[in-house]
Write a protein that binds this DNA or RNA. Sequence first.
DNA 1: TATGAATGAGGATTCATTCAT
DNA 2: TATGAATGAATCCTCATTCAT
Lengths: 209, 209, 209, 209
Amino acid sequence: MSEHEDRQLVGAFPYVPQQKRAQQKRNSLLESGRELFIKNGYEPTTAKEIATHAGVAIGTFYRYFSDKRQLLLSLLQNQLDKMLPPEPKWVMANPERFLASILESHFKQLEQIGLHQVLPELIIRDPELAEVLIQSRKNWHARILTGLQQAKEKGLTWPDLELEMVAWSILVILENIPKKEKESGLKTDCVELAKIICRMVFPPKGMTP
Amino acid sequence: MSEHEDRQLVGAFPYVPQQKRAQQKRNSLLESGRELFIKNGYEPTTAKEIATHAGVAIGTFYRYFSDKRQLLLSLLQNQLDKMLPPEPKWVMANPERFLASILESHFKQLEQIGLHQVLPELIIRDPELAEVLIQSRKNWHARILTGLQQAKEKGLTWPDLELEMVAWSILVILENIPKKEKESGLKTDCVELAKIICRMVFPPKGMTP
Amino acid sequence: MSEHEDRQLVGAFPYVPQQKRAQQKRNSLLESGRELFIKNGYEPTTAKEIATHAGVAIGTFYRYFSDKRQLLLSLLQNQLDKMLPPEPKWVMANPERFLASILESHFKQLEQIGLHQVLPELIIRDPELAEVLIQSRKNWHARILTGLQQAKEKGLTWPDLELEMVAWSILVILENIPKKEKESGLKTDCVELAKIICRMVFPPKGMTP
Amino acid sequence: MSEHEDRQLVGAFPYVPQQKRAQQKRNSLLESGRELFIKNGYEPTTAKEIATHAGVAIGTFYRYFSDKRQLLLSLLQNQLDKMLPPEPKWVMANPERFLASILESHFKQLEQIGLHQVLPELIIRDPELAEVLIQSRKNWHARILTGLQQAKEKGLTWPDLELEMVAWSILVILENIPKKEKESGLKTDCVELAKIICRMVFPPKGMTP
DNA sequence: TATGAATGAGGATTCATTCAT
DNA sequence: TATGAATGAATCCTCATTCAT
């Protein structure tokens, strides 16, 4: 039943089609929504636009989604799934490798990050959605935190490390890289970035902490 | 002529009233706009709402602002002015003190930060406005960068410090603190934060770099 | 494909419906517009009024017309087509018969003349529209002129006839008859009118020019 | 009391100032109204515009005129006065001279004709005003008619002349000359025009009617 | 008198949503 | 199922008019 894999969990959807043809139509709407939300923002994008872009009639839009918001939620559902961490194990020997993996998995999801641009607009208006997003961030945060804790327990980090705050700092930096790249137009040098972050966490090699 | 002091410069707008009474009304509209934008977001806030909240008729709104966007720009004009840096001198002896001053000046502007919540919504739709905001960020960034450069020239920092990226990291962290506080409900411990940041920049005291 | 016959060409408007039902609705709007424009004038007539009069919602109005002006243009498009001349051949033997035909075809278009009442209001504000109307008049003028020329070449007219100006005079007289009838409430005596006009053009029967 | 000469007769005016200064202000408003009505039409011209153009505040506008319509009426009152006929006596010996005088007096009032452009817009909406204008036309018509009658009584015209209709035709031609000149950009040749008109009225010289 | 700030009714237009075909 | 016509609430904005200064 692999067709049901991404069945939506948020809200009660009017209809998740069983037939392949219909599935395609639904996906086409999702994809159109994603593109238009990213390009024009959430509010300014109309249901009609999405339908037209997807090559279906407006009535069809409302067959698959109760409204614009629900399409967005489905989209996020999909994306948040993709955001699930690729086993973020903090490898003690070479912490920078850990960061590399996080950065890698993060940047490979550039499209999904596109949606991130849209979210701030929504968080204010949609507390339910905000909650979902905050949870997602908390997961990220927790994963980073866990890694740090393990490293700390092994005596690898600064002994007085404020785990919470460092984890948060790392999270914030990672989150904002796409924005930085977009504004500057330059690709970020991951090695340098990892070095910087590691200095927050680990004392210099030659120094006994 | 103190009445003219904060005359607005944003746009070529119809009217900035000369009379005290009218000035008050205009400010009242600005303040109402700020509150509602922060509370409900930009798009969902209507001109009528702002007028009603300010206790004036809708016509009065349009007397002072060509539209909602103009009001927002005026608001930002005010706020961005307030963001001008309070003598951002990087005091070599005690770098954490420098951070303290930045953090301090930053947190004292909590209201302005409120507006920041609104901005992402706008950046997609309003490239002109986006430009203004990006400029403002660049100023912040430049100021932090300058401080770091001076410190580096004095041999105080890690010798291989990637100035640009460190400055950007610091900026991002500072920018996101209000959001963090809002989400977690906790006040940030500035001392800890300063310590973390300093580790990105300076080698440990006892260590000759 | 008779459904496509009277597809509108004015402007690039959203939608000319393919379905019969919708066509009817569109025509109903056109007719309502015509009536209200004639009765109340162009400016004072609102889109809402037209929609209500046509028995549809305001949204439906904007489905078929981008705005009031567009509706008017469509209306004129229809009417100007109807104004195309019914073979305006100047029959040499009996010039008054020629006039009769013009007058006849002119008076049979009383509804279209209704719209003429509306036009002066628009010409000032809408140069594009004014151009269309002036062209239409020029056509009329040209047709009258051609007839006169033929008559002149055959030696039927006053030899020193100022063709241009006579044609213009006839045009003006014809154009204003509806107004005259409206103001006086009396039907115009076409025979008398024809006689008067013919005296401008032709020397008396018994007189060799 | 020559200052009172053009005291308004239409409606009850809020205020006709006695003082010279105020009179100037009032005239300035009238003149501004005239210019703007002619340039932009009646409806689209706002009271504010008129006031600004006249260099006074909007409140002042309403001191002198109850509203836009009343300003227009005052304007027409002035103009209609100017339209009073310069003793239109039909000189039997040379009828073309008569026409010359009419045409002359008519073309000397080109500015007033400017207002004529505005009237059609109003007639539909303002029956009271329409009445005034129709009366004015009737006066013109009556004057032309009288001249023709005298000529007819003297046996100068076609014996079967339809006085009413000829008078009307002449009126219509005269009325439309400014429009013609505006559209074609050419000055009308009065002599030719007079010739044409005379042929409607008088039999050829050599011919005993 | 003159000013111009304030008012708010009213017109234009959009778009989410429904429903008959 | 798919369509797209129809709806009308909601928003934007203007402008005639009033009234406190």
